[in-house]
Simulated scan of single mutants.
Amino acid sequence: MFRDLSRPTETGMPTYPGDPDVTLAPDATREADGYATSELRTGTHAGTHVDAPRHTLPEGEAIDDQPVGRFAFDARLVDLRPLQPRAAIPPEVLPEPSDLDPGVDLLVLRTGWASHWGSDRYRDHPYLTAAAVERCRAAGVGVGLDTFGPDPTPAASGAADARSSERNEPDGTPAHDALLGDSLPIVENLRALDGLPSRFRLYAFPLRLRGADGSPVRAVAEWAD
Protein backbone atom coordinates (compact mmCIF):
# COMPACT_ATOMS: atom_id res chain seq x y z
CA MET A 1 0.00 0.00 0.00
CA PHE A 2 1.12 3.53 -0.76
CA ARG A 3 -0.13 6.85 0.58
CA ASP A 4 0.90 10.36 -0.34
CA LEU A 5 1.70 12.32 2.83
CA SER A 6 2.61 15.53 0.98
CA ARG A 7 0.95 18.92 0.86
CA PRO A 8 0.05 20.04 -2.66
CA THR A 9 2.34 22.78 -3.98
CA GLU A 10 0.16 25.64 -5.15
CA THR A 11 -0.04 29.40 -5.35
CA GLY A 12 -0.78 30.99 -1.99
CA MET A 13 -0.16 27.87 0.10
CA PRO A 14 0.72 28.40 3.78
CA THR A 15 4.38 29.06 4.51
CA TYR A 16 6.39 29.53 7.68
CA PRO A 17 6.18 33.18 8.84
CA GLY A 18 8.68 35.26 6.87
CA ASP A 19 9.40 32.60 4.23
CA PRO A 20 8.86 33.36 0.53
CA ASP A 21 5.37 33.05 -0.89
CA VAL A 22 4.72 30.21 -3.31
CA THR A 23 3.48 30.86 -6.84
CA LEU A 24 2.83 28.33 -9.58
CA ALA A 25 1.74 30.00 -12.80
CA PRO A 26 1.67 29.30 -16.55
CA ASP A 27 4.72 30.42 -18.52
CA ALA A 28 4.21 29.09 -22.03
CA THR A 29 0.80 27.83 -23.18
CA ARG A 30 -0.23 25.36 -25.85
CA GLU A 31 -2.52 27.97 -27.38
CA ALA A 32 0.19 30.63 -27.75
CA ASP A 33 3.39 28.59 -27.93
CA GLY A 34 2.43 25.07 -28.94
CA TYR A 35 3.52 23.60 -25.62
CA ALA A 36 2.93 24.23 -21.91
CA THR A 37 5.44 25.10 -19.19
CA SER A 38 4.93 26.64 -15.76
CA GLU A 39 7.01 28.85 -13.50
CA LEU A 40 7.39 27.78 -9.87
CA ARG A 41 8.67 30.19 -7.24
CA THR A 42 9.11 28.74 -3.79
CA GLY A 43 11.31 28.67 -0.73
CA THR A 44 13.24 25.55 0.12
CA HIS A 45 11.06 24.95 3.20
CA ALA A 46 7.61 25.35 1.65
CA GLY A 47 5.03 22.63 2.10
CA THR A 48 6.18 19.11 2.90
CA HIS A 49 9.97 19.23 3.01
CA VAL A 50 13.16 17.96 4.61
CA ASP A 51 15.70 20.08 6.45
CA ALA A 52 19.43 19.85 5.85
CA PRO A 53 21.85 20.57 8.71
CA ARG A 54 22.77 23.83 6.91
CA HIS A 55 19.24 25.06 7.68
CA THR A 56 20.27 26.14 11.19
CA LEU A 57 23.96 25.21 11.47
CA PRO A 58 26.40 27.40 9.49
CA GLU A 59 28.88 24.57 8.93
CA GLY A 60 26.23 21.88 8.43
CA GLU A 61 25.84 19.67 5.38
CA ALA A 62 23.84 20.94 2.44
CA ILE A 63 20.93 18.89 1.12
CA ASP A 64 22.97 17.61 -1.85
CA ASP A 65 25.83 16.56 0.44
CA GLN A 66 23.66 13.83 1.95
CA PRO A 67 23.37 10.39 0.30
CA VAL A 68 20.01 9.90 -1.37
CA GLY A 69 19.45 6.66 0.55
CA ARG A 70 19.31 8.64 3.76
CA PHE A 71 15.83 9.83 2.77
CA ALA A 72 14.25 6.35 2.71
CA PHE A 73 13.19 5.84 6.31
CA ASP A 74 12.01 3.00 8.51
CA ALA A 75 9.33 4.94 10.36
CA ARG A 76 7.33 4.39 13.50
CA LEU A 77 4.10 6.31 14.01
CA VAL A 78 3.64 7.90 17.44
CA ASP A 79 0.12 9.19 18.14
CA LEU A 80 0.37 12.09 20.58
CA ARG A 81 -3.25 13.24 20.41
CA PRO A 82 -4.95 15.02 22.04
CA LEU A 83 -2.63 17.99 22.55
CA GLN A 84 -3.34 21.58 23.52
CA PRO A 85 -2.18 24.54 21.40
CA ARG A 86 1.54 25.24 21.83
CA ALA A 87 1.89 22.23 24.12
CA ALA A 88 5.41 21.21 25.13
CA ILE A 89 5.89 17.55 24.21
CA PRO A 90 7.70 15.73 27.04
CA PRO A 91 10.04 12.75 26.60
CA GLU A 92 7.82 10.21 28.33
CA VAL A 93 5.28 10.22 25.47
CA LEU A 94 7.98 9.05 23.05
CA PRO A 95 9.26 5.47 22.90
CA GLU A 96 12.24 4.54 25.03
CA PRO A 97 15.27 3.77 22.87
CA SER A 98 15.13 0.18 24.12
CA ASP A 99 11.51 -0.12 22.92
CA LEU A 100 12.29 0.74 19.31
CA ASP A 101 12.57 -2.09 16.82
CA PRO A 102 15.97 -2.41 15.13
CA GLY A 103 16.20 -0.28 12.04
CA VAL A 104 13.73 2.44 13.05
CA ASP A 105 15.32 5.76 12.13
CA LEU A 106 12.34 8.14 12.10
CA LEU A 107 9.52 8.83 14.55
CA VAL A 108 6.49 10.26 12.76
CA LEU A 109 4.70 12.33 15.38
CA ARG A 110 0.96 12.71 14.85
CA THR A 111 -0.06 15.82 16.80
CA GLY A 112 -3.38 16.33 15.00
CA TRP A 113 -2.31 19.79 13.81
CA ALA A 114 -2.60 18.83 10.15
CA SER A 115 -6.31 19.62 10.44
CA HIS A 116 -5.44 23.31 11.00
CA TRP A 117 -3.46 23.71 7.77
CA GLY A 118 -4.40 27.00 6.10
CA SER A 119 -5.46 28.78 9.29
CA ASP A 120 -3.58 30.90 11.83
CA ARG A 121 -4.13 28.11 14.35
CA TYR A 122 -1.61 26.00 12.44
CA ARG A 123 1.11 28.22 13.93
CA ASP A 124 0.07 27.18 17.44
CA HIS A 125 1.33 23.63 17.05
CA PRO A 126 2.95 21.60 19.85
CA TYR A 127 6.73 21.45 19.97
CA LEU A 128 9.45 19.18 21.33
CA THR A 129 11.03 19.89 24.69
CA ALA A 130 14.79 19.66 25.08
CA ALA A 131 14.33 16.40 27.00
CA ALA A 132 12.21 14.92 24.19
CA VAL A 133 14.87 15.85 21.67
CA GLU A 134 17.50 14.19 23.84
CA ARG A 135 15.45 10.98 23.85
CA CYS A 136 15.42 11.08 20.05
CA ARG A 137 19.16 11.65 19.97
CA ALA A 138 19.76 8.80 22.39
CA ALA A 139 17.77 6.50 20.10
CA GLY A 140 19.43 7.82 16.94
CA VAL A 141 16.10 8.73 15.35
CA GLY A 142 14.89 11.81 13.53
CA VAL A 143 11.35 13.17 13.47
CA GLY A 144 8.57 13.67 10.97
CA LEU A 145 5.80 16.05 11.97
CA ASP A 146 2.38 17.24 10.83
CA THR A 147 3.43 20.78 11.83
CA PHE A 148 5.76 23.60 10.77
CA GLY A 149 8.53 21.95 12.79
CA PRO A 150 9.85 20.67 16.12
CA ASP A 151 10.39 24.18 17.58
CA PRO A 152 7.68 26.74 18.41
CA THR A 153 6.46 28.90 15.52
CA PRO A 154 5.76 32.61 16.12
CA ALA A 155 2.09 33.13 16.87
CA ALA A 156 -0.17 35.04 14.51
CA SER A 157 -0.76 38.07 16.76
CA GLY A 158 1.48 40.31 18.82
CA ALA A 159 -0.57 39.60 21.93
CA ALA A 160 -0.07 35.86 21.53
CA ASP A 161 3.65 36.41 20.95
CA ALA A 162 3.87 38.32 24.21
CA ARG A 163 2.22 35.47 26.07
CA SER A 164 4.81 33.02 24.75
CA SER A 165 7.31 34.27 27.32
CA GLU A 166 4.84 33.39 30.07
CA ARG A 167 4.74 29.83 28.70
CA ASN A 168 8.54 29.63 28.86
CA GLU A 169 8.77 28.64 25.21
CA PRO A 170 12.34 28.27 23.96
CA ASP A 171 13.79 30.93 21.69
CA GLY A 172 15.43 30.17 18.38
CA THR A 173 15.73 26.67 16.95
CA PRO A 174 17.11 24.43 19.72
CA ALA A 175 15.33 21.27 18.58
CA HIS A 176 16.48 21.79 15.00
CA ASP A 177 20.03 22.48 16.16
CA ALA A 178 20.23 19.36 18.32
CA LEU A 179 18.75 16.97 15.75
CA LEU A 180 20.51 18.40 12.71
CA GLY A 181 23.76 18.60 14.68
CA ASP A 182 23.63 14.80 14.89
CA SER A 183 22.58 14.55 11.20
CA LEU A 184 19.16 13.26 12.29
CA PRO A 185 16.42 13.91 9.74
CA ILE A 186 13.55 16.37 10.13
CA VAL A 187 10.54 16.05 7.80
CA GLU A 188 7.93 18.78 8.21
CA ASN A 189 4.32 19.54 7.18
CA LEU A 190 3.21 15.94 6.70
CA ARG A 191 -0.46 15.15 6.19
CA ALA A 192 -2.84 12.16 6.02
CA LEU A 193 -1.34 10.37 9.01
CA ASP A 194 -4.68 8.97 10.21
CA GLY A 195 -5.01 5.26 9.63
CA LEU A 196 -1.34 4.57 9.00
CA PRO A 197 0.08 1.41 10.56
CA SER A 198 2.50 1.74 13.45
CA ARG A 199 5.42 0.75 11.17
CA PHE A 200 5.95 1.76 7.56
CA ARG A 201 8.54 2.98 5.09
CA LEU A 202 8.62 6.69 4.40
CA TYR A 203 10.23 8.01 1.24
CA ALA A 204 11.00 11.74 1.24
CA PHE A 205 13.50 12.35 -1.54
CA PRO A 206 14.66 15.96 -1.91
CA LEU A 207 15.44 17.81 -5.10
CA ARG A 208 19.15 17.92 -5.86
CA LEU A 209 19.58 21.59 -5.00
CA ARG A 210 23.23 22.56 -4.98
CA GLY A 211 24.31 23.84 -1.58
CA ALA A 212 20.73 24.23 -0.32
CA ASP A 213 19.50 24.14 3.29
CA GLY A 214 16.47 21.95 2.59
CA SER A 215 14.09 20.88 -0.14
CA PRO A 216 10.44 20.20 -0.86
CA VAL A 217 9.71 16.48 -1.12
CA ARG A 218 7.04 14.08 -2.29
CA ALA A 219 6.58 12.17 0.97
CA VAL A 220 5.12 8.70 0.42
CA ALA A 221 4.34 5.99 2.97
CA GLU A 222 4.56 2.31 1.99
CA TRP A 223 3.43 -0.71 3.99
CA ALA A 224 2.29 -4.27 3.41
CA ASP A 225 -1.43 -4.67 2.73
Rank of each mutant, 00 (worst) to 15 (best):
T42G: 07
E59N: 12
P174L: 08
R70K: 07
P197T: 00
E166I: 06
G140D: 12
A219T: 07
G103E: 09
R121M: 08
L184P: 05
P206L: 00
S115D: 15
P152Q: 15
E134S: 15
A138N: 06
R54M: 12
T42F: 06
R86A: 04
A212K: 06
F2Y: 14
T11Y: 12
P216N: 04
L207T: 01
C136F: 08
L83F: 06
A46N: 14
I89F: 12
E92K: 04
V22L: 08
P53M: 12
V78S: 10
R86S: 09
T37Q: 15
D79C: 07
S157M: 12
L77H: 10
Y203P: 00
R76I: 00
T48W: 11
E61P: 01
M13P: 10
G142C: 03
L190N: 01
V217M: 01
L57I: 15
L202M: 01
G69Y: 07
T48Q: 11
M13W: 11
D151F: 09
P197V: 00
L109D: 03
W223E: 12
E39F: 14
E61T: 01
H176Q: 01
I186D: 04
T11N: 12
L83H: 05
L209P: 02
V217I: 01
A224Q: 14
N168R: 13
P85T: 02
R167L: 15
G144T: 04
L184T: 02
G158I: 06
D4K: 03
V220I: 14
V78I: 13
R218Q: 13
V220H: 07
D182N: 02
S115I: 05
A139R: 07
D33P: 08
A130W: 10
F200Q: 01
P95F: 07
P20T: 03
R54L: 15
D65I: 01
V93Y: 04
T129M: 11
S198G: 00
P53D: 08
A204W: 02
T9D: 02
A52W: 05
A28L: 14
L145W: 04
N168A: 11
H49D: 09
P102Y: 03
A221Q: 13
I89S: 11
V50I: 15
S165G: 13
L193Y: 11
E39Q: 14
G12A: 04
P97A: 04
P53W: 11
R30L: 09
P97I: 01
A139G: 10
P17Y: 09
D161W: 12
G181P: 02
A224N: 13
G181T: 02
